[in-house]
């Protein structure tokens, strides 16, 4: 398991669904934000978080949701409910005031972000990056794209280790971080070796990719494509069409 991953293996319908289908569902979720009133967005969030528990990924999804959403929610409610100057404001104390309108606006923004966050987390927790990349290859996306998504994910842990080693080495050599100019110098001492190594890696790897015929053809075969069915393909098209329709209506009716 890689350090950054919140993917949890499983066999639920959501786990088994083709990653592209799940992406299309996320698109629909984003389109819904245009039309859903704020109580709907919050209800949707609750629904998705509950669903996560049904899929046995509730713990990891809820924890991540709280870590990411809480600071934003606090900030948005305080800022719009208590600070921003609005026509209906009622002074409380010092620069604080109470605004019903502001609180509602905070609920609208908070609901939208919450819903998108919950949806994205469900996607990430049930989709292994490798499956997403294979499905991109199968969908005939340029192989360069899936490489650019895969390669950083694979290299993060390696580079984190290296950055740590460089830091230890420079500290052992007596690198100081007291004054401002110390820190600037330290920054250079830390980044130069990291970037030099990275460029050496990049150069060697581009040789490896060419040697293994990467992008020799516009498409590549995929040894074990993620499962996909005609029904799912039709569902995907429907989801995309519905998203376009929703956004279109929302903009037209506005």
């Amino acid at each position: 398991m890689r350090s950054w991953s919140i993917h949890r293996p499983g066999s639920s319908a959501l786990h088994r669904a083709n990653p592209l289908t799940k992406l299309a569902a996320l698109l629909l979720l984003a389109a819904l934000l245009f039309v859903l009133p704020w109580p709907g967005a919050w209800a949707g969030t609750l629904l998705l978080l509950t669903a996560a528990f049904g899929l046995h990924i509730g713990g990891v999804v809820l924890r991540r949701y709280l870590v990411l959403a809480t600071p934003f929610l606090i900030a948005v409610f305080i800022f719009h409910g208590l600070i921003v100057d609005r026509p209906d404001r009622m002074p409380l104390a010092a620069f604080l005031s109470y605004s019903q309108e502001g609180l509602t606006y905070a609920a609208v923004l908070g609901g939208r972000i919450s819903l998108m966050l919950a949806g994205s987390l469900l996607f990430v927790a049930t989709t292994h990056p490798a499956a997403l990349l294979r499905s991109l290859d199968v969908a005939r996306m340029p192989p360069g794209l899936s490489f650019l998504l895969a390669s950083p994910l694979l290299l993060i842990d390696e580079f984190t280790k290296r950055a740590g080693a460089i830091r230890d080495a420079q500290q052992a050599r007596g690198m100081r971080v007291n004054t401002f100019s110390d820190r600037l110098r330290a920054l250079r001492l830390l980044t130069l070796p990291l970037v030099t190594l990275a460029l050496a890696d990049a150069q060697e790897r581009s040789g490896v990719l060419n040697a293994r015929a990467f992008r020799a053809f516009p498409r590549r075969a995929v040894l074990s494509p993620p499962p996909d069915t005609a029904l799912e393909r039709r569902l995907r098209h429907a989801l995309v069409a519905a998203s376009v329709l929703l956004v279109g209506c929302a903009l037209w009716l506005r």
Binding site: P129, F147, D201, E204, V208
Partner: peptide, 14 residues
């Protein structure tokens, strides 16, 4: 050898 990995594969088989 780590520099000769493709950087595209999540498993040895891939």
């Amino acid at each position: 050898p780590v520099r000769h990995l493709s950087g595209r594969a999540f498993t040895v088989r891939e």
